[in-house]
Computed example of a mutant assay.
Amino acid sequence: METERTDEATAEQAAQEIRALIDAAVARRGGDTAAVKPGHRVPFAWPPEAVSHRYPLHSSDWRGTAEFRAHGETFPVQTATTPYGVFGRCEPLWLEAKGDTLEAMLRRMKESAEPLFRRQRAISEALGAEGRFTGSIRSLDNLSLLKLLYCTDRDVSHEASKEIELRASQFRFLPALLEVLADRRHPHRRAAQWCVLDLFEDFPSFCRTSEDEAQVVATIRDLIWSAEDDYARTIYKAGVVLGGHLPGEIGGPALIECLRCVSKVGRRSAIHGLFHVVEWDPELRGAVVRALEECADVESDPQLKEYAQLMASDITQGAYDHIPEPVFPEELSP
């Protein structure tokens, strides 16, 4: 019992830290709470291929030394001048480059290091630290992993979420993850929320009780209900989680309720999610079809009216696939 109380206290402290992180982000923007549209996730792989491996170089060729500066730091470089060009190797960065001259090689090396520097600075910024992060995400504590969900580099937030998934049995992440889903103020909330929803596809790993499950459903429902945008396809993802991973008596009724929500991207998500509810719980087919038909009768948006009608038809016919979801005119702009 004492261990459980300590666990809950630590989990609540993590949730408080997330609230403080959100407050700080809003303060830095002068009170602006608009969401920033994130870019696509670009998988990061480091180190890149060693260019010297394409040529017949020997260890004895690496006789010279040089250096280059970037972002206030100086990096040592081993050099090899050969008939094939000038090669450089920066061991602190696990990076090689090649050029026709020493200057060209160093210039290329500096350019090649920029993706690593951007990632490292993005991690430090998300952690509230200075400089560039030179450690491994896997070595970070649980709170730091939670903070990285808000990283501007979506591959970083993805990697942090995968580490959280691995530690789900070791720490009670649920209160902090629910804080992320309930966030309506941090500029980078959409990518963070997408990661949390992805984690909740395996909700039993994070929910210990039926009360936990109900809290997850309620928080996802609220996210759908008031969504102002579908950046990062987060609201779409929310419907998929409720419909495909929490269906039946849990997610199905929440999605039916969301057919009446104030957000049109939320209603779109609910219409789509209900297709997956029936996939997993065919006994709900009748109730879902009726709800979609009623939704179509009162829906004011022409695209969503047609979408609900066609989705109801697909479900009635037992289709294996469904009508593509509509794209709203405002979503066509960059």
Rank of each mutant, 00 (worst) to 15 (best):
R167A: 03
R167K: 09
A168W: 12
S169V: 07
S169M: 04
S169P: 00
S169F: 08
Q170S: 15
Q170T: 12
F171D: 08
R172P: 04
F173N: 10
L174I: 04
L174R: 07
L174A: 14
P175Y: 08
P175E: 06
P175A: 11
P175K: 13
P175H: 09
A176C: 10
L177G: 08
L177Q: 12
L178H: 09
L178F: 12
E179H: 03
E179N: 03
E179Q: 11
V180D: 08
L181R: 14
A182M: 04
A182G: 10
D183H: 00
D183A: 00
R185C: 07
R185H: 07
H186G: 03
H186L: 06
P187I: 04
H188C: 00
H188V: 00
H188N: 05
R189I: 00
R190Q: 05
R190E: 11
A191L: 01
Q193G: 13
W194C: 09
C195I: 03
C195F: 03
C195W: 09
C195N: 11
C195L: 07
V196H: 06
D198E: 09
F200Q: 01
F200E: 01
E201A: 14
E201H: 12
E201Q: 14
E201I: 12
D202I: 05
D202Y: 09
D202E: 13
F203Q: 10
P204R: 13
P204K: 14
P204D: 10
S205W: 14
S205Q: 15
S205D: 15
S205M: 14
S205T: 07
F206T: 09
F206R: 06
F206H: 00
C207S: 12
T209Y: 14
S210Y: 08
E211S: 15
E211G: 14
D212H: 10
D212A: 10
E213F: 05
E213P: 00
E213H: 06
E213K: 15
A214V: 11
Q215F: 03
Q215D: 11
Q215G: 14
V217T: 03
V217H: 02
A218L: 05
A218S: 13
T219R: 14
I220M: 07
R221N: 05
R221I: 03
D222G: 11
D222W: 09
L223I: 08
I224M: 00
W225N: 01
W225E: 00
